[in-house]
């Protein structure tokens, strides 16, 4: 499903897109932070600081979404992005998987 941005709520849509991207970057940061922690390369104090900072970011993002009424838009943008990435990855160089899917289609259409 393509990302839904209508002309009449362009500003809202744009803000939604921006927040969606901020969330994705935040998720990447979280992931990295987690890896460092699990890898044992952080001290207790660092873990504490990192955790507090990330939690504050979470709260700030939620706050913005609430204030602007953006939760729906952001979810739809993220879903749209998920679908697109799925699609692109599926279509990329992977003849074997493609062959399999084609075979299934052909059996269906016979």
């Amino acid at each position: 499903m393509p990302i839904d941005i209508h002309e009449d709520n362009l500003k809202h849509g744009l803000l939604g897109l921006v927040i969606a991207l901020v969330e994705i970057i935040r998720d990447a940061l979280k992931h990295q932070a987690l890896r460092r922690m699990e890898g044992g390369s952080l001290t207790d104090e660092e873990v504490e600081r990192l955790g507090s900072a990330l939690e504050e970011i979470d709260i700030a993002i939620d706050h913005i979404k609430e204030e602007q009424g953006l939760s729906e838009t952001v979810n739809s943008v993220r879903d749209g992005l998920d679908d697109i990435v799925d699609d692109v990855l599926d279509q990329m160089v992977n003849p074997e998987r493609w062959a399999r899917e084609m075979k299934e289609e052909e059996n269906k259409n016979g």
Binding site: K30, A33, L34, M37, E38, D44, V47, E48, R49, L50, G51, S52, A53, L54, E55
Partner: peptide, 15 residues
């Protein structure tokens, strides 16, 4: 755990 550390461990739990 303390607040920040609890957050980090919650993430691990979620994963």
């Amino acid at each position: 755990k303390s607040k920040g550390a609890a957050y980090m461990y919650r993430q691990t739990l979620e994963k």
